[in-house]
Amino acid sequence: MAVSDVPSKEASVLRGHEGAVLAARFNGDGNYCLSCGKDRTIRLWNPHRGIHIKTYKSHGREVRDVHVTRDNSKLCSCGGDRQIFYWDVSTGRVIRKFRGHDSEVNSVKFNEYGASIISAGYDRSVRAWDCRSHSTEPIQTIDTFSDSVMSICLTKTEIIAGSVDGTIRTFDIRVGREVVDDFGQPVNCICISNDSNCVLASCLDSTLRLLDRSTGELLQEYKGHTCKSYKMDCCFTNTDAYVTSGSEDGQIFFWDLVDASVMSSFRAHASVVTSVSYHPKDSCMITSSVDGTIRVWKT
């Protein structure tokens, strides 16, 4: 019940993006963070010291999502230019560009070993790309979705994707099975809990829904924030004790995972909070907003 363990103190503000920041992500160990935005750049920051480290420019249009491998050596990013960029972190050069999506790419993730990239696009497809070979063709295309695929999560054996058609589809590679959970509400963002038993889905009816992955049961609904038209992230805290999400009015909400009560909410940004990312170990969070800033929150 203690609200004190919720990061609500602004530790630093990362400025540099011109225009909206569309996504901000911690890297694997939480020492750095990446952000991307409408200014077609990807930026690498040290959020703890509040410094900007590097800018990656090559995208032709806005960058919607970025992800980094566990070894911090490669980046992948996607955006409005329908391509997935595969970057080398240190040199800042694009190693490969994967073309194949027929439309904007909403989300992109490396798999566990950084050997392939899974991307989800507005063209209702999820595509898998091979980083190991030189082929720029997708190694697999999943097009069972009936609307734009907004978000993607990967486990070691599964691809989980949430779509505007209201479904969360889990593709289990090991079993060869597709599990469809139909919420009936457009799914904006999905996030997998740290124990990977649950999936949190941010729906466009201003509700976060917690889904039990094994049974397909709806465990909880979290309400209070506004999420009606923007793609906004949601995430679990590092301990899976709370669920957090931004709101279209610039607030950040924390809910108790179990009883769905709003533990804390505070105004964090002047405008829509597009992305929230929680530190994998510490109680630290970064949020990005349309107002062009990334804020680092600590307890």
């Binding site: 798999n111 566990e112 070993y113 050997a115 392939s116 898998a128 091979d130 980083c131 190991r132 190694i139 697999q140 999943i142 069972t144 070691k156 054996t157 969360i168 593709f171 289990d172 590679i173 060869g176 099975r177 597709e178 599990v179 469809v180 959970d181 139909d182 919420f183 009936g184 829904r209 889904l211 397909g216 049961e217 709806l218």
Partner: peptide, 19 residues
């Protein structure tokens, strides 16, 4: 949520990449 299950066939190379 309604749950349905289908067979889905991952590409062999995808399996390989996912180890």
């Amino acid at each position: 949520p309604k749950r349905e299950e289908y067979q889905w066939r991952p590409a062999p190379i995808l399996c390989k990449r996912f180890d």
